[in-house]
Design a protein around this nucleic acid. Structure first.
Lengths: 333, 333
DNA sequence: TATGTTATGGTAAACGTTTTCTTTTTGTTC
DNA sequence: GAACAAAAAGAAAACGTTTACCATAACATA
């Protein structure tokens, strides 16, 4: 590998001078010298060693992005948002899939720490956060931003799940539905709790009593939505006429189950999901859903992190707006 | 930040000794000394500085993963595969989205080079490869593995697109279809060319003449599949009875268009896609498709790269098997 | 002439590790 | 008790940068 020394020798100057032209330093350099250095750099194919540089400057221009699983369709949008802004600001992103495993999370935190990343963006909540707090923040801090709900005392970027869920259910109520079931996320998920709360508030505001069979716990996976349908009253005059699922995957599972039972969506049962994963617009009928601005969540998180790294104050919480994307599954053409 | 010196002082030994226990060196260390060092490390919360280490050792245990767009549902599976193996082998992954832009690709290659990544995995072909060859490999090499077809002289991990496409079409022929249309990828894509070739060979082997209107060029996006349907003969006895799309997104677009025209899938028109993105099993009817083992592509690519980095010989091409995932869109229950 | 000042450039320490080479300590053998 | 070997530990150079500080030359100023 060619080093700054080689360049210096080749250009007939000191390494100091090479370093100066490399970094556009304040220090005056004569045009001829600069030219010679630039020529030497080109000629030798010199690429400064970022590690030596980082060692000296104590910054790596690298951040860690920790999430449960990139293969979950909710996350790629976030990642892309983070990455775009990171790239624009000269940062590089290390991707860490934790599968929500505490072990693996800690493992990654150790590596990120050893690699001296300048900052970290977390998403995926829960156990991950605990591990992080313990491990990362308590022993010397690394700038960190969290996407989503969290208990830690860290800057967060999130959406208002209670409100968004409420709006989704209000939409169904406005269409005349009263008997509305909901497929929730796992009870431990704060996100799921918020979405359930939104459902409750909308129903309550409308004076509709929620019947016991209407709330079915899922796990955010396709299958749990599919299976939830089996537990719902679908015939007789006790039957439900709409389903609000806590995410799109479960909503699509529910649609599939309804389809297989010969129940028409949206004619007999309307369905609304949550997240607006890419898939949502492609299924038939196209899924009405709460659009979570995943890309913007990523973009904003990285922006906040960059502010933090620049030593500026950042808001403790940034809340991004959702909007209801009404498609075919909840409304007749 | 606490350094190895602090640990040494705290444990009353030299940095050499600390380094030795840190790296489980051959050099004998008395149990008591080791204990003292370990205790000091723990007590001070010491995390070795990977950059200083890398500078010395000339390896970063980091690799770059270059792809067009993580938000494209084809890629997360690959990324996950790469990441899993990388993690297992002690590597960290830097994610680079290029949007197939030559500019951005070169930009990233520069950064990866400066950060002295140990290796690179490329996927997404085309322009990217050119940029890479030029920039990366010609001036001092970095271990590299390519996923998919490529022209460069680099170890590759791929599937046999010709064969896989042929099998997909043979499946349709076996079901009795003769008038089979195909929605291709962009003409410049080698992948698309291979898949078209497979279609041709299957038809030819069966003695079916391909009519001009049957081959419609798409661009691998949902919309082009949707729009392709408009150009197909769908009524009269010249009508096609099956569609082979070069990827799932286009296949799903086609299904949507057929649905809107009141044409039943698979009863009136069968559809087969390619890739087996997660979405494929969730749409209605569930999409029959050629299952590309994306996760395994990632896993294998990283394994090959690791071999390369260990200085071992690797096969120039590793071909992974595809299989046809027959679901509802091409066969009646 | 002595003294600054400015423009340009260089020397060498520092960043935090690993590792080669030495040194010290301990133990064994005759 | 001398001689040596083995075990344990340390000193210092090296990795490739950045930068504080210093040096020189040219020129202006009093």
């Amino acid at each position: 590998m060619v080093t700054i020394k080689d360049v210096a020798r080749h250009a007939g100057v000191s390494v100091t001078t090479v370093s100066r032209v490399l970094n556009n330093s304040q220090h005056p350099i004569s045009p001829e010298t600069r030219e010679r250095v630039l020529a030497a750099i080109k000629e030798l194919g010199f690429y400064p060693n970022a590690m030596a540089r980082s060692l000296q400057l104590n910054e790596t221009k690298t951040i860690g992005l920790i999430l449960p699983d990139i293969a979950n369709p909710y996350y790629p949008g976030i990642v892309r948002g983070v990455e775009d802004v990171a790239h624009e600001k000269g940062y590089t992103v290390i991707l860490c899939n934790t599968d929500r495993s505490r072990e693996r999370t800690k493992e990654y935190l150790r590596v990120l720490r050893e690699k001296r990343v300048d900052g970290v963006i977390f998403t995926g909540g829960g156990a991950v956060e605990d591990a992080s707090r313990e491990h990362f923040f308590e022993q010397g801090s690394v700038a960190t931003v969290v996407i989503g709900r969290h208990k830690a005392d860290l800057p967060a970027v999130q959406v208002d799940n209670v409100r968004a869920a409420r709006e989704a259910v209000e939409h169904l109520l406005r269409l005349g539905h009263r008997r509305i079931a909901t497929v929730t996320g796992p009870a431990v998920s704060t996100t799921a709790r918020d979405r359930l709360e939104g459902y409750r508030r909308a129903m309550e505001a409308e004076g509709v009593d929620i019947e016991p069979g209407w709330i079915i716990e899922g796990d955010f996976e396709f299958n749990s939505g599919y299976q939830a349908v089996a537990q719902m009253p679908l015939s007789g005059n006790q039957r439900i006429t709409a389903i609000f699922a806590h995410n799109d995957l479960m909503a699509i599972g529910a649609i599939k189950a309804l389809y297989e039972r010969g129940i028409k969506v949206p004619e007999e049962v309307a369905v609304v999901g949550f997240d607006n994963i890419p898939l949502a617009s492609f299924v038939t009928p196209a899924l009405s859903t709460v659009a979570v601005p995943v890309y913007d969540l990523g973009v904003t998180a990285m922006r906040v992190l960059a502010e933090l790294l620049a030593g500026r104050k950042v808001p403790p919480v940034t809340t991004l707006a959702t909007h209801l994307e009404v498609r075919e599954s909840s409304i007749l053409k």
